[in-house]
Design a protein around this nucleic acid. Structure first.
Lengths: 210, 210
DNA sequence: TAGATTGTTAATCGATTAACAATC
DNA sequence: TAGATTGTTAATCGATTAACAATC
C-alpha cells in the first residue's frame, strides 16, 4: 500500500534516475553518492535524497548507494518488475514504430496483440505480434485481463476508441493521438503528445532569437 | 524581447490552451470565458488568466475571450507563426512515422530533408521529403541555416550525433532517442521519451492495484 | 444600468533546497 | 577514529489559487 501523496514531479524523475543507474551499472560503477548522481543528471543531491526518502532507505551513511541495488529498487517502485498485459490499437506508422523498436519487456509490459480496422492488415504479424480485427477489442480485453491499452489510432477516432476502451474496464491508456482523452473518467491516461512538445521547443527557439 | 522568467509549467500549458481553442473555433464557438476554458481543460480559471497575463491582455471584462483571436495570439506566443528550417536525422520507424503523419507546417516548422546512413534509403523520398547521406548533415545545416534537428537515430548513435549537431551550431534538438543528450551544452533539447512515459504509467497502474 | 468577467495583487499551498544530527 | 554521506527536519522559494477593484 503506497502513499499516493507523492508528487507527480517526483514520480517523473524516477525513470531518469533509473536510466542513469542502468548506465552506471553497465559501466561497472559499483557505488554512487547523491551528489555524484545529481551532478550527472542536473539535479541537486538534496532532491534525489528527498525523492528516494518517500519510498524507503536505500543508502548507507558515509558510502552512498549501491548502484545495482538502487537500480533494482527504483525499478520496483515504478512497478516495472510486475507484469501487465497490454494491447496496441492502431497499426499505422507510430503503432508500427512501437511494435518494431520499443522493448516493452523492459517496462514490465507484456504486449499481447495489436488491433486495426484495415482488412489487409488483419491476420498479419509485425515483429511477432498478431494484428486482429478491431471489432474484437472489447471481448479480448475482458477475456484476457488486459490492463493497458496503447492508443495509436488516427485523431478522428481517438475519442470514440478511448470511450470504448474505458467501457471495457481497462486500467490505463498510453495515448499517442495528440488528442486529449482524459475528460470525464478518473481513468489513468499518460500522453505522448508530439504537437505539445514541438510547440514548447518552438517557444524557446523563438524566444532566444529575440 | 520576451521575459524569460516565465515558468516552464506555464509554457507547457499553452499548447493545451491552443488545441482547445482550435477545437472550439472549429465548432463555431465565438467566445469563451476563463471559467469555461478551465472547465473543459481541467484547470482553474485563475490559472488560465494568470498564465495569459504574462504575455499581455487578451480578454475583455464582462465578455471573456474571443476564441479565434486568442487562438492566434497563443500561436504567436509559442512562435508557431514564424518559420524555422528543420531536418530529420534517422529514418527508422519513428522517423518514418513523423515524416508520414506529423503536420510540421502547423507548428511553423519547414522540414527540409531527412538523413540516414543506410545506402539503400539514400536518394529515396518519404512523403515528398528526400533522404540524404548522413555524411552531409553538417554541411547542409550550415549552408541552409537549419535551426532544428529532429533526432530519431538508434540509441547507440544518439550522443555522437547530438554532439555533431551541436558542433554545427544548431539551435535546438527534438530528441526521440530515449537517451539524455542535454549534458554540457546550454543548447535547447526537448525530449520525447517513451520509456520515461511508460514507466510513469506503470507506476500509477501498479500503485492503484495495491 | 446591472451582470459578468477580466487582469492583478495578496494569500495559500506545495515543492525544492539547505542544514545537520545520526551513523556507516 | 576521522571523513563521508545519508535520511530528515526546517527554511526558502516558487507556483497556484482566491479575492477584488476595474470595466466592458
Amino acid at each position: 500500500m503506497k502513499k499516493s501523496n507523492i508528487s507527480n514531479n517526483t514520480i517523473r524523475r524516477l525513470p531518469r534516475y533509473l536510466r542513469k543507474l542502468d548506465e552506471l551499472g553497465k559501466k561497472g560503477v559499483m557505488r554512487v553518492s547523491s551528489q555524484e548522481l545529481g551532478n550527472q543528471l542536473g539535479f541537486t543531491a538534496s532532491q534525489i535524497r528527498q525523492d528516494l526518502s518517500y519510498f524507503g532507505e536505500f543508502g548507507q551513511q558515509g558510502y552512498g548507494y549501491n548502484v545495482n541495488s538502487l537500480r533494482e529498487q527504483v525499478a520496483e517502485i515504478l512497478g516495472l518488475t510486475c507484469e501487465n498485459a497490454a494491447i496496441l490499437v492502431g497499426c499505422g506508422n507510430i503503432g508500427k514504430a512501437l511494435l518494431c523498436n520499443f522493448t516493452f519487456s523492459e517496462c514490465g509490459v507484456a504486449l499481447k496483440c495489436a488491433f486495426d480496422t484495415d482488412k489487409s492488415k488483419i491476420g498479419t504479424h509485425i515483429n511477432g505480434i498478431e494484428i486482429k480485427n478491431s471489432e474484437e477489442i472489447l471481448e479480448y480485453i475482458v477475456e484476457n485481463g488486459v490492463n493497458i491499452a496503447i492508443l495509436c489510432v488516427p485523431q478522428e477516432a481517438a475519442r470514440s476508441v478511448a470511450d470504448m476502451l474505458r467501457a471495457s474496464g481497462i486500467s490505463a491508456i498510453w495515448n499517442f493521438t495528440n488528442v486529449d482523452i482524459s475528460e470525464p473518467h478518473e481513468n489513468m491516461v499518460e500522453n505522448i503528445n508530439f504537437f505539445d512538445s514541438l510547440a514548447v521547443l518552438k517557444y524557446y527557439v523563438t524566444e532566444t532569437k529575440k
